[in-house]
């Protein structure tokens, strides 16, 4: 297999503006075949717009790209045939039954035996018993499961999932991710946007964007190492008061509450250490040196992106 065919998504310099505002700005992203690529960033950072450009629903203002080797500007027809796109909101027909929805998808993709394909999908999804229930009556978790089932029904080689687990309970989220990993082992490439850190940690690679620009990408250890944050975990009393106090101290880049602990970090290692010694000496709280979490890194990236603006 040539190197070219190993790449599922190859976007270079994608730019898209709406009403004079650059929503995606010179974004380049490569995703290898079979990888699960996490796509993270705050609300309004351009994740959905990027995904829509990749599947041919939006035309980039500038930049080039291919999906599965097809040009995203000129070969949208081919892309639609072999890319499964799961929209942010539920976009199946609420007034059709589960089976009818799946059969509709199978027919639009010209599958040989749409009824059989739908039946097979029903069984795989564990929805065979509820096949004749209206899709609109399903709970959030089942809706999302059905939507994924409809996406993979035509046998796509690439899945683009736009916040598939928003508003879904933890158990359903876990099942969903098990399914994604299962699909990935079968050779499917997945690009999935999310706000959940535990989900990000289950991706092979992560890309983080803010204000339409790619700020970091790579594996999780690469991103954490690349941030060069020294992080201390503080526990003890009156942490909120400490947080507001630390926020304006020189050398402090992030102060964030995690459950009963406070994460304090900065790129200036010496400055953070001085603070840790000074506040640690008070004795009211414990300061402990720790590896930065992915979330620490993202908070730092987001703060810096906000300052740039």
């Amino acid at each position: 297999m040539s190197v070219e065919r190993e790449i599922a998504i190859d976007a270079r310099g994608l730019t898209k503006s709406f009403g004079g505002k650059k929503v995606v700005d010179n974004l380049s992203l490569q995703v290898a075949r079979g990888d699960i690529q996490g796509f993270l960033g705050p609300n309004g950072s351009g994740k959905t717009t990027t995904i829509r450009m990749l599947c041919g629903l939006l035309t980039p203002d500038s930049g080039e790209g291919t999906c599965l080797g097809y040009d995203i500007r000129r070969q949208q027809k081919e892309i639609k045939r072999c890319v499964g796109y799961m929209t942010q909101g539920f976009s199946l027909y609420r007034d059709l039954t589960i089976r009818e929805n799946l059969e509709f998808v199978a027919r639009v993709y010209n599958l040989e035996a749409p009824e059989d394909a739908a039946q097979a999908a029903l069984e795989r999804l564990g929805l065979a018993a509820r096949a004749d229930q209206l899709a609109g009556e399903l709970s959030g978790g089942w809706k999302q499961r059905l939507a994924l089932g409809a996406c993979i029904l035509p046998g796509p080689a690439l899945l683009l999932l736009d916040e598939p687990t928003a508003g879904v309970d933890p158990k359903a989220r876990r099942d969903f991710w098990d399914e994604i990993h299962h699909l990935s082992t079968q050779g499917l490439t997945v690009l999935v946007s999310t706000h959940y850190m535990d989900e990000a940690e289950r991706c092979h690679k992560i890309a983080y964007i803010a204000n339409g620009r790619l700020l970091a990408s790579g594996t999780m250890p690469e991103i954490v190492a690349g941030a060069q944050l020294s992080t201390w975990v503080v526990t003890g009393e009156a942490l909120d008061a400490l947080a507001s106090e630390l926020k304006h101290q020189p050398g402090v880049d992030i102060v964030a509450r995690f459950g009963s602990a406070l994460h304090v970090g900065g790129r200036d290692q010496a400055a953070i250490e001085r603070l840790a010694r000074r506040y640690g000496a008070e004795g009211r709280r414990q300061w402990k040196r720790d590896e930065p979490t992915l979330e620490d890194v993202f908070i730092d990236l987001m703060t810096r992106a906000g300052a740039d603006r």
Binding site: L57, S91, Y93, Y109
Partner: peptide, 13 residues
């Protein structure tokens, strides 16, 4: 309005 158009547009029809 029901949000089904986006999915429809992403299909080969």
């Amino acid at each position: 309005e029901r949000g089904t158009m986006e999915a429809l547009l992403a299909m080969p029809i």
